[in-house]
Design a protein around this nucleic acid. Sequence first.
RNA 1: GGCGCCGUACCCAAGUGGUAAGGGAGAGGUCUGCAAAACCUUUAUGCACCGGUUCGAAUCCGGUCGGCGCCUCCA
Length: 466
Amino acid sequence: MDLKLFNTMGRELQTFKPVQPNKVGIYACGPTVYNNAHVGNLRTFIMVDILRRVMELAGYEVKLVMNITDVGHLSSDADDGEDKMEASAREKKMTVWDIAEYYTKAFFDDTSSLNIIKPSVTCKATDHIDSMINLVKRLEEKGFTYEAGGNVYFDISKFPDYGKLAKLNLDDLQAGSRIVVDKYKKNPHDFVLWFTQSKYENHAMLWDSPWGKGYPGWHIECSAMSMEYLGDTFDIHCGGIDLIPVHHTNEIAQSEAATGVKWVNYWVHGEFLVTPKGKMSKSTGDFMTIKGLIEQGFDPLDYRYFCLTGHYSSQLQFSLDAMESAQNARKSLMQKIQTMREKTGGFPQGFNGDLSAHYNSFVENAMNNLNMPRCLGDMWNLIRDDSISDEEKLYTIKKMDAVFGLSLDKEPVKLDLDGEIQKLVDDRTTARKNKDWARADEIRDKLLDMGIVLEDTPQGVRWKKK
RNA sequence: GGCGCCGUACCCAAGUGGUAAGGGAGAGGUCUGCAAAACCUUUAUGCACCGGUUCGAAUCCGGUCGGCGCCUCCA
């Protein structure tokens, strides 16, 4: 079956054709590690994770490369503002290097709590400065650059297709409508490849280069590292939708100018997580983190489930109500699975015969531009279908979960009831046998206060944490 | 000013020409000593509004209203 993806380049649904048979190379723009990621950032990484899992479902061997932006990026324009990482470091009295490491770890803690599979290659920008310098040199040799005011700029007038991805119409853009244009630029859309001039003093991250001591421009790391690990032309580049007009546009220009060949075949962009006030962002203070969700009583996987209920290419409305709805749905899902595995003795190792139409529909929907909301619907329809045995359901669910990544086969946490609680449960069972309902209900209420919920099933009493 | 997206039930959300997936919440019921859980049933003659194209439109076209994003680093 063909896998179809919406390619931002061309803005249409296209059948995926790999550069190399049965293999797929994916580059994902990773985090800038100067702060905790918020759940909006994380939505994009869940999307990338779904993409790689669907690729695996389709039988491809996946090589996923993700960068860690640990070189400080400016908080505003080139001639203004300070390094985000330095600002953060000063606040926390740590060196920039410490803080990068700290937030890199925090990022991977978040992603692993969301069941996001680690990329095949994770590359730090600061480990690849030489590659970036070499790339800038190549651009310089080919005449795509100029030096001004101490910095090396990319000259977009030398690259005819500039802005194609974003469908930019350079004449109509109000350059500088919100910021002051760098006076050294020949064209407002030219961008810096290498900085030696920085407005702020004592920049902590500096490297020697042919143009002087300095640091790389914002976009060069992704071009340098993606080509280093995936080759001059690779299959898929993904990231958030906000990266289209500037970051990815500039990456394409510098990459293709350097190699002279097409750089990326498919561009996949994830839409924003939004709140009633607009997009979730750190700068407005209107954001939520994984830690925050946990404090609100959610499991990170509730958030993953929530993300799967919306299509990656559409904005998704974040709210605590929506989170609660996802939490309830996931709880109920786990409960149904638990009931089935208790009845059948667990997930079967294999299954003889063809799987139901629900599974076929699931695969079709996954292959159709990663339509997870539909896939989730397929799973619910499967669970509800009386004509299918519990064994087949469990087997199918496990296969589906390879894409969902919801740990649906996870054993529920067995509570170690301490002696006192166990005694209460036993007392209640005795009371019920003697039809002493008042006593039984009294014990049930007491346990509820202790956070233990009881369920009476034909197989006996079952308990779980509230 | 330019580019782009969106408006589907109480809430979240699929569906982009063939007669409205799924989940949550609510309601009714079965079961149960009662609860809980589970299971069943139920909730949009209509998809912002007004026109048009079509045998047929939530889906295509034009317009109106409303919301949002980008043009600055941003997932």
